[in-house]
Write a protein that binds this DNA or RNA. Structure first.
Length: 834
RNA sequence: GCUGGGGUGGCGAAAUGGCAGACGCACCGGCUUUAGGAGCCGGCGCCGCAAGGCAUGUGGGUUCAAGUCCCACCCCCAGCACCA
């Protein structure tokens, strides 16, 4: 057998897989379907990252195993190619983003193919292709027609460096997610998508899917549902009966509300101005606060600031008392009603504010006696005299609450809401999705503004609205898209009346194309609709979707939303797009830092493939550690994967070579121990792949190979496996190292192989063979191991105990003491307790 | 602060309540080689010459037996965070 030369073998099979379209998914196959999905890459100029390799290898392993199990597998790939880095590169170099994208996708394609992923390349999609974004625009029009896409003037998060409006989701602790510049607030007309209309279902339907728990939790946190009530507080002496409406999750504490707070941006601030006596002071505070970026607000920490609206008093609807009203920036205009009732005795923030401003603190909830906080409070109370020293935020028994005294919190909530004419209400943290970007390299929003007819959607038959070729890609400081400067493109005839009209110049965010790409893979060349219903019915839903944790809030939520919307339209057959979602851990640089160009610790997959081959890179990335965990790259450790494959090659090659020459095979000559291990390994590799425990799957293959090639077995190596066992051995390697496995397969003697290994049946293990016939029995005295012996499996209790009690080391440890008890666990141990 | 996941050799890590450290890296010794490397054989938690003892973040507990179960605490990572 010649030396293992991955370069030659890998090139050969990659060409044949591609030319013969071996992995093309068939729409008309009688086999059961399996849809395996990975996040399509953003084709950056840096090329493929080791993190892509980790995710794509994992799903490639699943896809290859499924094919061997008889499934018709769809494992597609494409390019999520709109986005800022390409645009920035275009601005810097003057190269058209189209050209940059073409170059980058060519690189990515070559790199992905060099790794031997079993993608169906016939279904490649590109979000920047007009044939693709035509349907992104079509979906937008459906949102528009259903009233779920609307334009609104609103304060947005503006990144002064990227010159772009950001969705709340793209602001990370007050800074631009991309460039880290502190975000400013600007008023702007923006397109919005009404994702909040789907908040309830996006939350509830998490119960119907199989996502990792932490992924579900992140989705739930982001949607942020809370149950409470809206309660109206009348303003004393106000003209026309003005009132302040608050949202609270604790209506049971209403009797303890001693003041109110409204957000500085609250619209009622204007309406109340007639009553406010300290107008100048209030105006100054509002001005100061609104100039603050969120960054500055956070920097001030939890120190509360605010100003009383002197002359404005609200009436607590429960106690009928007049209570003061403040404005303070700890109350957010964007959540709930933008106003709160403050209950300092039972809320930490209100408590801190009340302490600072000398507001009364009135306890109305008594902890139940079993509550752990009770003892603490009583102790504090006696030490410092009466008065509340720490807010009690738990449930309890009502006190000082008129007719509700003695009632349980939970029970009192509804009663109090009813008594004061409030309404039960569910609030969400989730906001509507800001869907406009003032940039060139995105999908044009297919709307025109007519002088006569106002906003008019572009007729569906006129899609796509193509991005025009322009000279300058730089967004303007006024925040207008560079498209606004292209007169020929902007000025159009109104589709409705034919009169003068202007196109919308905003484009869609880069999340748009990725919100539905999994549907386009199903019917990628269809130009009559985004995908044919019968094909969608056949392939949806996605059976298994793997991607990075960094996309588990936004992309996952957005694409679930789009899919649900299309489901409601009746054009997609399932409400939830993904049956199962998993995430891989990041591949870090040496030493555990994130890989980055500035740190100089980026590993280029190309150089690893050139030095060791794709199979070695695949095996190494799967073996390096638990799949869901972040693991630093170690370019020494990759040697382990390389050695394993070389030894596998030599062993399996020798076995095949010997078969070709031998006159006869000694069928079934393998030692029982080795056959048994092989069958246990078949089981373990299969089980571990399903659980994504790729590291232990590969380790069990290593253990098997070590056993098969040890010195003792070597003289007899050629006959150590039956034909069937040799075939099984090569098959279970296939998902991990498909080039080597396929090469070995093709060299098998006539009759042992036919066609491509990926369509040969996944081996079944024989439970009878897998069971070991000898086991190690542990002897303990008082729980400490004293000896181990090899015995036949299935030894009965009496025999095992006798053996233990007769054992020299056991007797020595007993030192003459009489056993009081002897514990026996079948095929495991005997523990003598003295 | 809340939610989720973690803490085991020099390193990446294994371990249905039943021999802790499988497998791999690094390292040490041997064989082979003109040399380097590769390969093969063996060793490799800590203390100890040994017998043996001690070891899975810390402290308790349950159990014949705990990395694993229970209680309290410390630390690390990720996400969310003035959300009423």
């Amino acid at each position: 057998m010649e030396r293992y030369d991955p370069g030659e073998i890998e090139r050969k099979w990659q060409e044949r897989w591609r030319e013969e379209k071996v992995f093309a998914a068939r729409d008309d196959s009688p086999k059961p379907k399996y849809y395996a999905l990975v996040e399509f890459p953003y084709p950056s100029g840096d090329g493929l990252h080791t993190g892509h390799v980790r995710s794509y290898t994992a799903m490639d392993i699943i896809a290859r195993k499924r094919r061997m199990e008889g499934y018709n597998v769809l494992y597609p790939i494409g390019w999520d190619a709109f986005g800022l880095p390409t645009e920035n590169y275009a601005i810097k170099t003057g190269t058209h983003p189209k050209v940059v994208t073409k170059r980058n996708t060519d690189t990515f394609r070559r790199q992905l193919q060099s790794l031997g992923f079993s993608f169906d390349w016939d279904r490649e999609v590109n979000t920047t292709d007009p044939g693709y974004y035509r349907w992104t625009q079509w979906i937008f029009l459906q949102f528009y027609k259903k009233g779920l896409a609307y334009k609104e003037k609103m304060p947005i998060n503006w990144c002064p460096s990227c010159k772009i409006g950001l969705a709340n989701e793209e602001v990370v602790s007050g800074k631009c997610e991309r460039c880290g510049t502190p975000v400013e607030r600007r008023e702007k007309e923006q397109w919005m998508l009404a994702i909040t209309k789907y908040a309830d279902r996006l939350l509830a339907d998490l119960d119907t899917v199989d996502y990792l728990e932490k992924i579900k939790t992140q989705q739930m946190n982001w949607i942020g549902r809370s149950e409470g009530a809206e309660i109206d507080f009348a303003i004393a002496d106000a003209e026309g009966g003005a009132k302040l409406t608050v949202f609270t999750t604790r209506p049971d504490t209403l009797f303890g509300a001693t003041y109110m707070v409204i957000a500085p941006e609250h619209p009622l601030m204007h309406a109340l101005s007639g009553l406010i006596e300290n107008r100048a002071e209030v105006a100054a505070y509002v001005k100061k606060v609104s100039a603050n970026t969120e960054e500055e607000r956070l920097a001030e920490g939890k120190e509360k600031t605010g100003v009383e609206l002197k002359g404005v008093m609200a009436i607590n609807p429960a106690t009928k008392e007049k209570i003061p009203v403040f404005t303070a920036d700890y109350v957010l205009a964007s959540y709930g009603t933008g106003a709160i009732m403050a209950v300092p005795a039972h809320d930490e923030r209100d408590f801190a504010f009340a302490k600072k401003f000398g507001m009364p603190i009135r306890q109305v909830i008594a902890p139940r006696s079993a509550d752990p906080q009770t003892a603490l409070r009583q102790e504090e109370g006696s030490a410092r005299g009466s008065g509340v020293e720490i807010p009690y935020t738990g449930d309890g028994i009502l006190m000082d609450s008129g007719p509700f005294d003695g009632m349980d919190s939970e029970e009192a909530k509804k009663g109090i809401v009813n008594a004061v004419g409030g309404r039960m209400k569910t609030q969400f943290h989730l906001r509507d999705w800001v869907f406009s970007r003032q940039h060139y390299w995105g999908e044009p929003i297919p709307i025109v503004f007519c002088e006569k007819d106002g906003m008019v959607p572009v007729p569906e038959e006129d899609l796509p609205v193509r991005l025009p070729d322009i000279e300058k890609y730089q967004p303007t400081d006024t925040g207008e898209s560079p498209l606004a400067a292209i007169g020929d493109w902007v000025n159009v005839a109104c589709p409705k009346c034919g009169g003068p009209a202007r196109r919308e110049t905003d484009t869609m965010p880069n999340w748009a194309g990725s919100s539905w790409y999994f549907l386009r893979y199903i019917d990628p060349r269809n130009d009559a609709m985004f995908a044919a219903p019968e094909k969608l019915k056949h392939w949806m839903q996605v059976d298994w979707y793997n991607g990075g944790m960094e996309h588990t809030t936004l992309h996952l939520l957005y694409s679930r939303f789009w899919n649900k919307f299309l489901y409601d339209l009746g054009v997609v057959p399932v409400s939830e797009p993904y049956m199962k979602r998993t995430s891989q851990g990041m591949v870090l640089g040496k030493g555990g830092d994130k890989m980055s160009k500035s740190k100089g610790n980026v590993v280029n997959p190309d150089s690893v493939v050139a030095e060791f081959g794709a199979d070695t890179l695949r095996v190494y990335e799967m073996f390096m550690g638990p799949f869901d965990q972040a693991i630093p790259w170690d370019d020494k450790a990759i040697q382990g994967a390389a050695r394993f494959l070389e030894r596998f090659w030599r062993y399996a090659g020798d076995m095949i070579g010997a078969r070709a020459q031998a006159q006869e095979h000694r069928e079934g000559a393998a030692e029982g121990r080795k056959r048994s291990l092989l069958h246990r390994t078949i089981k373990k590799v299969g089980d571990d792949i399903e659980a994504m425990k790729f590291n232990t799957a590969i380790s069990s293959l290593m253990i098997l190979l070590n056993e098969l090639t040890d010195a003792e077995g070597r003289s007899d190596a050629v006959v150590a496996l039956t034909d069937a066992d040799l075939v099984a051995l090569v098959k279970i390697l296939n998902p991990f190292a498909p080039h080597m496995a396929q090469e070995l397969w093709s060299r098998m003697p006539e009759g042992l192989h036919a066609g491509y290994l990926d369509f040969a049946a996944w081996p079944t293990y024989d439970p009878a063979l897998a069971a070991e016939d000898e086991v190690t029995l542990v002897f303990q005295v008082d729980g400490r191991v004293r000896d181990t012996v090899r015995v036949a499996r299935g030894m009965e209790e009496a025999a095992a105990k006798d053996l233990a009690l007769a054992n020299g080391k056991v007797r020595a440890a007993l030192a003459g003491r009489e056993p009081t008890r002897v514990i026996w666990v079948k095929d495991k141990l005997v523990n003598v307790v003295a």
